[in-house]
């Protein structure tokens, strides 16, 4: 029964993806700007006729509905077109940049959960204690400063002053790694190269912490708030009254239930992790999709923007689906 529901949900993502494809196609063309004019740069001499010829080569001279039709049929065949700017297939560009983005997002997620959950639980258990106060106040700094500020301050402290962590990139300059998954931290382990692992891990720490800080704060807040609520529930009191150890009460009874809203938050924050990475990738010179998409939207490189947004959307939809499924697992009373 549940399997069918899950399948239904997966099928329901198809119209969303088509919707996204159409919306982004129209949206990006509604934004003022001429990709060909931008491509031609400044110095030298280019005439209107040459630009017209270039437009023709990109199909930009055709009516919008024809372009849309071409785009949709092309996309259905799995072809996302070619970047105006780099004359490389969009699929290649995305496959090149996606692993970096995933690595960063996962790193941030791990950081957020590792920091957020324990802080939230401890704060709730020791409500109103100094630990609680300090960590909650800290969480507001995490939320109230934008990514780029945290990032630059992090670089100033940990890279320039203490020289513990590198300022930018995924590996030390000149090092390279054989691509297996494209996630350097994992690839280096698969290759059994501990030095590369350490190097890539080193580079990952600061960007992940920057990107994950706000989410960690969010998780801590929600975790604390729902833990507090659950610790007041009758069944927890009963468990306490029965003389179960505090550890067992918290881990066995409270934690699982308090995780429900946390999972929702994490699910909702996938968007932040994916969207926020544009800024973090720029600050840390991290060669991911986010930076590429911002550059492409500024250059009005339509095919790249379309492809990348569809990818974002797809990832997001899938993440949500997983959250929904987890949700029903954690609380069987809810229908999908």
């Amino acid at each position: 029964m549940r399997g069918i529901k899950v399948l239904e949900r997966i099928l329901a993502t198809i119209p969303i993806m088509v919707g996204i494809a159409v919306i982004i196609f129209i949206f990006i063309r509604a934004v003022p700007g001429d990709p060909v004019d931008l491509m031609m740069g400044e110095g030298g001499y280019v005439s209107e006729e040459e630009m017209e010829a270039m437009r023709k080569a990109f199909n930009l001279d055709k009516p919008v509905h024809v372009q849309l039709y071409l785009f949709l049929t092309q996309t259905l065949r799995g072809d996302l077109g070619e970047s105006f700017l780099k004359q490389v297939p969009v699929t290649d560009l995305i496959l090149d940049t996606l692993p970096a983005t995933i690595e960063l997002a996962l790193g941030a997620l791990v950081f957020a959960v590792l920091v957020g959950v324990p802080v939230g639980v401890i704060s709730a258990v020791k409500q109103n204690s100094l630990v609680d106060r300090v960590s909650m106040a800290g969480s507001f700094v995490g939320i109230s400063f934008p990514h780029f500020w945290l990032g630059i301050i992090g670089i100033l402290i940990f890279s320039v002053t203490l020289q513990w962590l590198p300022t930018n990139g995924r590996l030390d300059s000149g090092l390279s790694i054989e691509h297996i998954t494209g996630l350097y931290v994992i690839d280096s382990l698969l290759l059994g190269d501990l030095e590369l692992f350490w190097n890539s891990f080193h580079h990952l720490i600061l960007p992940s912490a920057t990107l994950g800080a706000a989410v960690a704060a969010m998780i801590a807040r929600v975790m604390r708030s729902s833990m507090l609520e659950i610790l007041r529930q009758d069944y927890v009191m009963l468990a306490r009254a029965k003389g179960l150890s505090e550890y067992r009460v918290i881990v066995r009874h409270a934690l699982r239930n308090a995780l429900i809203p946390t999972v929702t938050v994490v699910g909702l924050q996938t968007g932040v992790l994916l969207g926020g990475n544009m800024v973090v990738e720029t600050v840390f010179g991290w060669p991911g999709v986010g930076r590429m998409v911002v550059q492409s939207i500024y250059a009005r490189d339509y095919p790249v923007v379309q492809g990348a947004v569809m990818l974002y959307a797809f990832t997001f939809v899938i993440a949500n689906l997983i959250v929904d499924i987890l949700y029903t697992y954690l609380n069987p009373k809810i229908e999908l």
């Binding site: 700007g33 969207g275 800024v279 974002y312 959307a313 997001f316």
Partner: peptide
């Protein structure tokens, strides 16, 4: 819900850059 999914799936900054440019 579908509409919300659609909107959520649209990266915020891209949307914002687009809207502010438009």
């Amino acid at each position: 819900s579908r509409f919300a999914d659609l909107l959520m799936a649209f990266p915020f900054l891209i949307f914002a850059i687009g809207v502010m440019s438009m």
